[in-house]
């Protein structure tokens, strides 16, 4: 089955029905390639059979086993381990950057969040959403009701960028409010203090959370392709600007970038946090597959 996105671009879709539609088209298109049905889910697992004792609900008797062995056995399941996921969406100023591409980093991030939320809801998992800059802006607790999805989508659509990226501070206030042993998906450019952020991630991990970080990049930020004299104005602070001949500093910039990414990657690996760098010109489906792959590993 051809995916909807094959014929209609996400930008067109955005105009039609917003994030939810976009997410559905992406996720369904994505899932159509998988062999196992996503509807099976991961959270309802068979555990063992045990002999029937009086008082057990009749409907929990496994009649197939009775047919084979002429004995009553109760079919026992694992506790219903519905996945509790919180998506942390960075809405700081730096996420507003848009290079030559057709979307800024924040749009890309919102869409990614929408896709993930949709995918998880379809798997009966419960999903919550936190948007933040220097501190959490909105906090939507996780629910697994289908109607919850539209709440998430609406919140995301209404969120605008602004403020500075401050992951460490955000997490400090946020962590106590998150469930233990849940999944935390962070969608951010991770600009800011690396050490502080890693400390927060460690804190999350310590509480038994699975952490997955999607780091959003624009191609310009990775390649620094500017040629002419350029005035760089800070997206997070209009008064902060730099006049630069980009050609002369490109080499140092790239080295600096490399170091930043390296530090981050090493730190995440140390805390068993998956760091997935994404560039805004990459399709979201790729991001989803990275997500699923990381889920399968556990």
């Amino acid at each position: 089955m051809a995916a909807l996105t094959d014929v209609i671009t996400p930008s067109d879709l955005k105009q039609v029905s917003g994030l939810q539609f976009f997410a559905r088209s992406v996720v369904e298109g994505f899932c159509s390639g998988l062999h196992t049905s996503p509807h099976k889910g991961f959270s309802v697992e068979f555990k063992q059979h045990r002999p029937y004792v009086p008082g057990d609900e009749i409907r929990r008797i496994d009649w197939k086993v009775f047919g084979r062995s002429d004995r009553y056995y109760i079919r026992e399941y694992e506790e219903e381990t519905n996945l509790r996921c919180h998506i942390l969406l960075d809405a700081s100023g730096s996420m507003a950057y848009q290079g030559d591409g057709d979307q800024d980093k924040f749009t890309y991030a919102k869409r990614l969040a929408a896709c993930l939320a949709y995918l998880m809801m379809m798997q009966q998992d419960s999903v919550g959403l936190v948007t933040f800059d220097t501190e959490p802006r909105s906090f939507i607790p996780h629910r697994s009701r289908t109607s919850h999805l539209s709440v998430l989508m609406k919140t995301m659509e209404e969120t605008e960028t602004g403020g500075e990226t401050e992951l460490a501070g955000t997490f400090r206030t946020l962590v106590p409010r998150l469930h233990r042993r849940g999944l935390v998906v962070i969608i951010s450019d991770c600009f800011g203090d690396v050490a502080g952020m890693l400390k927060s991630l460690a804190h999350l991990r310590h509480r038994g959370n699975e952490v997955l970080v999607f780091q959003i990049w624009d191609r310009d930020e990775l390649e620094f392709p500017f040629k002419k004299w350029t005035r760089f104005v800070n997206l997070e602070d209009d008064d902060h600007m730099r006049l630069v001949d980009p050609a002369t500093i490109r080499k140092s910039y790239l080295a600096n970038l490399e170091r930043f990414r390296d530090d981050l990657q090493r730190g995440c690996r140390g805390h068993r946090v998956d760091l997935v760098p994404l560039v805004t010109d990459q399709p979201h489906a790729e991001a989803l597959s990275r997500y699923l792959a990381s889920r399968m590993r556990r």
Binding site: D189, F226, K228, F232, T248, Y253
Partner: peptide, 21 residues
């Protein structure tokens, strides 16, 4: 005067370079 203006997010990466150079 003919310079372009870029609203830039990764200022912290640029700042390090500028400080040195």
């Amino acid at each position: 005067r003919r310079l372009q203006v870029v609203h830039w997010g990764a200022m912290h990466l640029l700042e390090d370079v500028m400080r040195k150079n």
